[in-house]
Write a protein that binds this DNA or RNA. Structure first.
Lengths: 215, 215
DNA sequence: GTCTATAAATCGATAGAC
DNA sequence: GTCTATCGATTTATAGAC
């Protein structure tokens, strides 16, 4: 309760502690993502994370309440990464080029961050569902989420008579699922007959679909 | 070693034993599939299977060497089910109608046997990969597997000038991945914006793709 | 903050009685 | 053929020392 001359330095200590806490959080999440990539989601255990970051398992519980809590954080961070990865497509003025860019950015994310993509769209939806729902409900103009952005673009293409007069939501879902099919098969089916980058089959499917969608 | 008068009845006993063994095998696999459907593949344990069939865990090991062995059998049986489910499409004479029927049968299987579809195309490929590989290598005329049948049909459509002159394998893969995208999102993403049967978005995507593929 | 130690639960698989 | 009993390993999560 007695006033001290060290008020200012104390503020600096608080900030340093917060910074260190955030660093530890990132350290844990990065290690978790590495384990998922190498051994799959089922192999993600607190002990393995602890070993990877060279701390005891108990320490992790100072930053995350449970294993599920870590998975939830990975999904939330992953979603932010996906939205950030779509940024280049946002600035594309030409509508047809924008749809093409959306597809390319989406598949590029899937193959650059396969663990994250798996976690969001292919794994136990127990973690992804609440986060997708929260993002959707927070999205007033329906354009901040990745799907909302695609939907708006498709709607405009239809309104301008460039696409045939189909249901915009159905068309957006169709584009999404076609891209997801490529990403998902590449990530979990060794018999998928494309060897290299999925951008190649991605461009093909976008081309064929566009031909079928044009008025 | 001494001959007996009961040779014939003994044969009947052997057959009954084989029949009972096969019944027990089916009982175990059906219970396993039910558990996977209700709780996911990770929740499949020997103890849960034992409880479901009302036998002790030890009994299961008389029919299967391990948990992995059960998963492998489920995938093998599941593949046979898928191929059998595609039969109606096989008899379709018109090539375009056949492609459409292949897509419809494929998605119908995915939504009628979601656990099996998951296990084959969406889960740990450790079990599916060896079986898909064995089927592929045993397939001399490349038409017995589901994908081989689709590939042959696409090749014929291109040869006859109905489809544009594209690479048949790429087109077959494109059709497959587009259908898989619908099935996979429906099975593991609660935000996929189609409520009812996936045959509806399936028909739409096949229609758009066909328009884009026609010469 | 970070650790050691451990509780409590659950798993696959097996040995041996009957 | 089926069971009981159990081994041994692995897990999450926590309590308490420092």
């Amino acid at each position: 309760m007695t006033p001290t001359r060290y008020d200012a330095p104390t503020m600096g200590i608080t900030e340093r502690k917060e910074r260190q806490k955030a660093e530890m959080r990132d350290l844990i999440l990065e290690a978790a993502l590495r384990i998922i990539r190498d051994e799959g989601f089922a192999a993600l255990t607190m002990r393995k994370i602890a070993e990877a970051i060279e701390y005891s398992p108990a320490t992790i519980y100072l930053h995350f309440a449970s294993r599920d809590d870590i998975a939830l954080a990975l999904v939330a961070d992953g979603f932010a990464k996906l939205v950030a990865h779509m940024a280049p497509a946002l600035h594309e003025e030409d509508l047809l080029a924008r749809v093409e860019a959306i597809g390319r950015c989406y598949l590029d994310f899937a193959q650059r961050e396969p663990e994250t993509y798996r976690l969001i769209f292919m794994e136990d939806e127990r973690f992804a569902a609440p986060i997708m729902l929260a993002l959707k409900e927070a999205d007033g103009n329906a354009g901040d989420t990745a799907f909302g952005f695609l939907l708006d673009t498709v709607q405009e293409l239809i309104d301008r008579g460039i696409y045939r007069p189909l249901n915009a939501k159905a068309v957006a879902a169709l584009l999404w699922s076609s891209l997801h099919g490529i990403a998902a098969l590449k990530l979990s089916c060794s018999q998928y007959p494309f060897e290299g980058s999925i951008l190649e089959p991605g461009a093909l499917v976008m081309d064929i679909l566009t031909r079928g969608l044009l008025a």
